[in-house]
Design a protein around this nucleic acid. Structure first.
Length: 683
DNA sequence: GTGTTTGATGTTCCTTTGTAGTGC
DNA sequence: AGCACTACTTTGGAACATCAAACA
């Protein structure tokens, strides 16, 4: 699955590249044509191209560009997966025994002792053990602060899509320049980025441990390794700094075609020329607010990587940030919402055994209202994509502590409280507002659980999907007797016939026809009429509806074999073609018929007859093929005989030409014939 | 500055049982 | 004759999502 995703992502990347280059080429073409239309002598076709381009340009100027949006989303996903892989690897590195040994050798013995001391045998009181453990954590953290020198201004940080793009194009240019200039030497480009330590293996980590300095990220990696070395279960917790996909979070602005003076006027902004070679981007400018992009993560701010240690006496995970001297302060790990260098979207905890868990809920204060919305969304606000990704790293079996943690995280959702904005209620897992209800949703029961700006707030669990009776039967359900529709919706027509009927109705009465819709609890399972005397109940079309398996009548069986209806007809037993769905083509709904439904007692009879007919068909087919093959063979042999005779009678001394001459039967046909013959022989 | 509304545009979902003509 | 296959009459249209700009 991972490979799939990566492949997808790679594909997307490739696509965009080709798209881009296509764009470029087309643009160049336009320019040439505009400059000198008569030159090439190509008439109307090119004019069309120009028109196409101009409309595209207009589309791009107004609103979001769908290609761009898809690209962003793909980039976000790919980046997230790549980050996960990267940290999965780092999580393995920090298990290195040699690294553990090195770290232990550098750790003062009393500190080591303070952890190993805590044991049920030596200290039977759980609350005392808890306190001892906390104290040990504090001590270790304190020591780490003096031991490890954190180099300021280094470390992973979030960058927006545009920043990355700009960087990428710059790099490309640089590498091209390098190639042109010095040939193979590419020192400038292959240098590590200024914001990160170069950590390539457990060995580099060891080096940093010995030097006792490095970025905040390296510090976190080493601290986690140390905890593991001390036999304290420790997780490497990472807040993945994926490229944001939403252009809303892109605090940068691109003004295509805006006047430079207009943008340049404000003093607080640094104007960066977008590095693009395309002519249309000549006026494109990127406006970067000064405070953000150039500055590294600020001192005293939440880290991107930190450690969670497992407190055995309490049975829970405790976050530790040694740089800020924080133990068990989970509320202080979320960066402010407007922070551009550190965005909390996915917080993943990697455990010693290599598995990982999503622990975002523990740290994000407004998870449902805000954090979850920054993630890659798929359908109906559900980020199932992420579920799929994280499930690949999830431990296949569950530990007791997993259950405990899930309970904790779930309860956190409820503690989160109401969103602070109207938008926060949209797709919120716990709360709902009436204004955000979809066409096919209702609130039942209408129990207010709060008020937000004068609007009643309801529980998400009381939001129910409603459907028409017609739609419910597709699920094999019917409306219970005496149930009244909860809501009425405007009728819509989707096939030509229905549309005509609707038009007709409109001319007769001016009022809009509506349909009643019902909730699931108003329905019951549809029980079809049973089979009586081998007779299958049929609908007006002579079929039987079998949208779900529960719609099969008692005493009947479904035989989903192609062409079986013919056999049933020949035998003369009662049957009904099974309609399992509909297919929409050319404004018509066509039933999808898969096999037939017959009475149970006829099953054996018809199935054996069916197999017989299938076999008979196969035999007939084989016979036909055999005949065909034999015909071809006789034709070939006859041809050869004729040829031989002709050569004997008239060929004379020209016999030598034979070899050069191609035979009358082409080699292609021959091959076919031979293959057919062999097939014919085997059957 | 934040959050909301509004308008424009793109995307997705919902839909839910033909017929005449041709060729084998 | 009877069956299978195909083209044509077209299939949107509203809800929803997203974005930028205006506004409170």
């Amino acid at each position: 699955m991972v490979r799939d995703d990566l492949a997808d992502a790679g594909h997307a990347n490739f696509e965009t590249k080709t798209l881009e280059s296509d764009d470029e080429m087309e643009w160049e073409e336009v320019d040439v044509l505009q400059d000198d239309p008569k030159d090439s002598g190509l008439p109307t076709q090119n004019v069309e191209v120009i028109l196409e381009q101009s409309t595209q340009k207009q589309k791009k100027r107004v609103g979001g560009d769908p290609v761009q949006r898809k690209l962003r989303l793909e980039a976000h996903k790919t980046h997230t997966v790549a980050l996960l892989a990267s940290f999965s690897l780092r999580n393995r590195w920090i298990n290195d025994p040699l690294l553990h040994a090195r770290l232990l050798s550098l750790t003062p013995l009393p500190l080591q002792m303070s952890f190993s001391m805590i044991h049920k045998k030596t200290e039977p009181d759980a609350s005392r053990r808890t306190r001892l453990f906390q104290t040990a954590c504090f001590k270790l953290t304190e020591w780490w602060q003096s031991f490890f020198h954190v180099i300021k201004g280094k470390g992973m940080r979030s960058r927006t899509f545009l920043e990355v793009e700009t960087q990428r194009i710059q790099n490309e240019k640089q590498s091209i320049a390098d190639l042109k200039g010095k040939g193979k030497v590419r020192t400038a480009n292959s240098e590590e980025p200024p914001w990160s330590d170069r950590v390539r293996s457990a060995k580099s980590l060891m080096k940093h441990a010995l030097l006792q300095k490095g970025s905040a990220d390296t510090s976190a990696l080493l601290f986690t390794a140390l905890c593991r070395a001390l036999d304290v279960p420790a997780r490497l917790v990472v807040s993945l700094q994926s490229v944001p996909w939403s252009s809303k979070s892109e605090t940068l602005k691109t003004d295509v075609g805006a006047s430079p003076l207009h943008n340049g006027g404000t003093q607080d902004e640094v104007i960066v020329r977008k590095k693009r070679s395309r002519p249309r981007d000549r006026n494109a400018r990127v406006v970067l607010p000064r405070a953000s992009s150039t500055e590294p993560p600020l001192e005293g701010w939440p880290p991107v990587i930190w450690t969670e240690v497992f407190s055995r006496p309490e049975g829970r995970w405790i976050p530790i940030d040694p740089i800020r001297y924080l133990v068990d302060k989970k509320k202080l790990f979320e960066p402010p919402a407007n922070c551009r260098v550190n965005r909390m979207m996915y917080v993943v905890a990697f455990e010693e055994d290599g598995y990982a868990r999503d622990v975002t809920l523990r740290y994000a204060k407004e998870f449902a209202a805000k954090t979850a919305k920054a993630r890659a969304l798929t359908k109906r606000g559900q980020s199932e994509w992420w579920q799929r990704i994280i499930s690949m790293l999830t431990r296949p079996y569950r530990l007791h502590r997993d259950d405990v943690e899930d309970g904790e995280l779930e309860s956190l959702q409820y503690i989160e409280g109401m969103p602070t904005s109207i938008n926060g209620f949209k797709d919120h897992p716990i709360y709902a507002l009436e204004r955000h209800l979809r066409r096919d949703e209702i609130i039942h029961p209408m129990k207010e659980i709060g008020i937000f700006r004068g609007e009643p707030v309801y529980s998400r669990s009381s939001v129910q999907r409603v459907r028409t009776a017609e739609t419910w039967i597709r699920e094999g359900k019917v409306i219970r007797e005496g149930q009244q529709p909860l809501k009425r919706i405007v009728k819509r027509a989707h096939t030509i016939n229905r549309k005509r009927a609707l038009e007709l109705a409109k001319t007769e009465s001016p009022e809009v026809p509506t349909l009643g819709v019902y909730a699931e609890w108003q329905t019951e399972l549809y029980v079809p009429e049973p089979v009586v005397d081998g007779r299958i109940p049929k609908n007006d079309f002579g079929n039987i509806n079998l949208f779900v398996s529960s719609m099969l009548p008692a005493g009947a069986v479904h035989l989903p074999f192609q062409g079986i209806s013919k056999v049933a007809k020949e035998i003369g037993i009662d049957f009904a073609p099974a309609v399992t769905g509909f297919e929409f083509r050319k404004g018509h709904a066509n039933p999808i018929i898969s096999g037939i439904v017959v009475a149970e007692e006829n099953q054996e009879l018809i199935v054996s007859a069916y197999w017989e007919s299938v076999q008979a068909n196969q035999e007939a087919e084989n016979l036909k093929r055999r005949e065909r093959v034999l015909r071809r063979w006789s034709k070939l042999i006859l041809g050869l005989q004729v040829r031989k005779r002709l050569q004997e009678e008239y060929g004379g001394s020209e016999n030598k030409v034979d070899e050069a001459e191609t035979p009358q039967v082409s080699s292609d046909t021959e091959a076919h014939t031979l293959r057919d013959a062999s097939l014919g022989n085997t059957t």
